[in-house]
């Protein structure tokens, strides 16, 4: 995880503001972590609504512990571990409920299929955390792609379209599409690397290609 922020403040600025009780700083961390934590929680409990409630409660706890954090990494660990524990509690509670309520039973069974034993449970949760972290970074990177690149990227990777179909749909040559795809991947990689200067250079190139 990098130290960059979009508004130019440094990590230390945010941490200090947070300690001083700034809701702006809280909002910054909320925006930064909310989507990936919901993604993570959903991966464990497979219930989107409960996942959001769990994450919301964890953010409330985060606020009350705001003076405990010295680095952003520490914040990330706290948030993930808290969400994990809350999800496990949630599942245990559901398990207890399912014994008395038949309609929830199948739900619990589905969970059990994934979580065979403690070791497998730990592995599974680790994978969900990895999935959430990587997905968040990929998502952020895609969001930052220039419009034309993003369009081509989405058609190619989301809709699994061949270069030819993409070219037809966007009325471009196959050559342009192939180039744009390559550029999109390069930009994606550079964004993932946080190499902004490189990124800007590529943008100039992209503009040329879009003509």
């Amino acid at each position: 995880m990098g130290n960059r922020t979009r508004s130019g403040e440094t990590e230390a600025d945010h941490i200090t503001s947070l300690r001083n009780g700034s809701t702006m700083a809280f909002g910054y961390y909320y925006d930064l972590f909310y989507p990936r934590l919901v993604f993570f929680a959903e991966g464990i409990i497979a219930d989107p609504l409960s996942a959001e409630d769990i994450v919301e409660d964890v953010f409330i706890r985060f606020w009350y512990k705001r003076t405990d954090f010295e680095t952003e990494k520490y914040i990330r660990s706290f948030l993930y571990v808290s969400v994990k524990n809350a999800c496990l509690d949630h599942l245990r509670h559901l398990g207890a409920v399912s014994r008395s309520e038949a309609k929830l039973a199948y739900w619990w069974e589905a969970q059990k299929a994934h979580i065979v034993d403690m070791e497998e449970e730990r592995e599974k949760i680790m994978r969900e955390a990895i999935r959430a972290e990587v997905s968040q970074q990929l998502f952020d990177a895609i969001e930052m792609l220039p419009d034309r690149c993003k369009q081509i990227f989405k058609l190619s990777y989301f809709h699994k379209m061949h270069n030819r179909s993409v070219a037809e749909q966007l009325r471009l040559s196959v050559f342009t599409v192939r180039n744009q795809k390559a550029i999109a991947m390069k930009i994606l990689r550079s964004i993932l690397l946080h190499q902004y200067i490189y990124f800007l250079l590529l943008l100039v190139q992209t503009a040329k290609f879009s003509l």
Binding site: G21, T23, F26, G27, Y30, D31, Y34, P35, R36, V38, F39, E42, E52, E56, F59, I60, W63, S135, Q136, L138, F139, I142, K154, Y157, F158, H159
Partner: peptide
Amino acid sequence: IDQVYVKMQAARKHGKQRRLDIISRIR
């Protein structure tokens, strides 16, 4: 990646919708 994108987008949107609610809970 398409499913990931859609899910992340939804989570971000819901996060924004709940933002004020959470801020008013803490402050």
